[in-house]
């Protein structure tokens, strides 16, 4: 069942957050600050910078592991006249919502809502660009562009 795979990947994602939470001595405020890091990221230690950028790259990798199933079956979906794009978009949206769950749970006020909506939009668009582009440079830089845009979103919605 595909749902099993989704649960496993969600648990892996949860585990990453538990490790981060432990690293911040189980202080929720520190975890929230980390998730919502803005340009002040560059005043933190190199470890924090790597962790923040690494987390964004990890989000892309995790979705790739799940979406790969549909990509490999594309030809057979097309033969059956299935709507490949719609299937893929639905799965990407489900993944994006799961990936953004920590952000959704931490929503504070209107600016928080705007932040999450922008975050989901940017993430989805960049993931689709990464998926549809056959250019290796685009593939490699999409998570980094997301990282920069996320910092910008966090900065402008404080």
């Amino acid at each position: 069942m595909r749902i099993n795979r989704l649960v496993i990947l969600s648990l892996i994602y949860l585990l990453v957050y538990i490790v981060l939470f432990a690293q911040f001595h189980f202080d929720p405020k520190m975890l929230i600050d980390f998730i919502q890091l803005d340009s002040s990221l560059f005043m933190h230690t190199i470890t924090v910078q790597i962790e923040f950028i690494g987390l964004q790259i990890f989000k892309f990798c995790l979705i790739n592991m799940y979406i790969d199933f549909y990509i490999q079956l594309k030809e057979m979906i097309d033969i059956r006249k299935g709507n490949y794009r719609s299937i893929l978009f639905k799965q990407i949206m489900i993944c994006a919502l799961i990936i953004m769950l920590p952000d959704i749970l931490l929503i504070r006020g209107i600016s928080g809502v705007i932040r999450v909506i922008l975050n989901i939009l940017v993430f989805t668009v960049l993931y689709i660009v990464q998926l549809t582009s056959k250019n290796k440079i685009v593939f490699a830089t999409s998570p980094l562009i997301y990282c920069v845009l996320l910092i910008f979103i966090n900065q402008s919605t404080i």
């Binding site: 595909r2 790969d68 199933f69 490999q72 079956l73 059956r80 299935g82």
Partner: peptide, 27 residues
Amino acid sequence: IGALIENPEFSNYSTIKENLEFLYNLK
């Protein structure tokens, strides 16, 4: 139409049941 074209590509990190079940359940 049912077709087998060249080397059939399946989801490698899934089981035979997961692959066939997904394709069958499309329609």
